[in-house]
Amino acid sequence: MKKLINKPEDVVVEELRGIAAAHSDLVQVFYEPNYITRADAPIKGKVALVSGGGSGHEPMHGGFVGKGMLDAACPGAVFTSPTPDQMLEATKAVNGGAGVLHIVKNYTGDIMNFEMAADLARGEGIQVEAVVTNDDVAVKDSLYTAGRRGVGVTVLLEKIAGAAAERGDSLAQVKTIAEQVNAQGRSMGMALTSCTVPQAGKPTFELGDDEMEIGIGIHGEPGRTRMKLKSAHEIVEIMATAIVDDLPYKAGDEVLAFVNGMGGTPLIELYIVYNELYNFLKGRGIQIGRNLIGSYITSLEMAGCSLTLLKLDDQLKALWDAPVKTPGMRWGA
């Protein structure tokens, strides 16, 4: 294992210290339990957004705390859900009296830990609602799985719901918009390499030099199919077809196209992927109204990418364009 770390067991807390040292103008970092809040939290009368998840997906979620996005984020151990005491303390710290929305990615552990935290927070008199993201088309959504995973849409949802809360929407309104984003978004990911959890010390799965894994999640868990490496053109066609056919996105639709790097893929490749996606969607008569290209929801040092499409309307576009000022996403502010 080659990593820029000191001790595997100190990875998360030392990252948090780095965030605190770098971005004290935007966020405040708390320890034991670990959580990050906006520097100006709590904001009286504003709905607060709290998310969280395993570490290893940076900049998500801690990098999205700030004006126009999240009020708090709770980092768990690498690829491990945070615990209810973290979400409870974060919820109390950012509650401005207008209620708190928990943004939860659909993984068994995250769901259970956030449910326990919401029960505890309600017990202390805080109004808590939750929205669950489950946009990964690689997973069959059936009674026989834990359901679709929450992946790329989570980033878009945190931005858009964050803007809705910032403009003064009620808890019910913010939740409705968040659910709309999840309902209109679909994603799929692929890996060129595996990744290594620091405390495990070796890659979570083996992938040959000439192989790729299609339909991976964001935790180094293997995907649904392994195949020989193909060209960017063919890879995008496989993934974009699965995404477009799933919702389905139709000719005349306007979408936000999000090309995400998994952590170990350079921007030059992401732009090649974007070009392929652009041409693919053009061929289907689907117009890209907004885009996002870069590594925003990662899987440590994994090479690969994920594609996310979100069907847009005027309101979602306005909320997407609204100012945001966080360590990981910043425009208009």
């Binding site: 768990g76 491990t80 615990t83 005491d85 068994t108 552990g109 259970m112 830990n113 449910e115 326990m116």
Partner: peptide, 12 residues
């Protein structure tokens, strides 16, 4: 265990 394990195993 709830506050230290995380994942699904912590709540379970």
């Amino acid at each position: 265990l709830v506050s230290t394990v995380g994942g699904a195993s912590g709540p379970l």
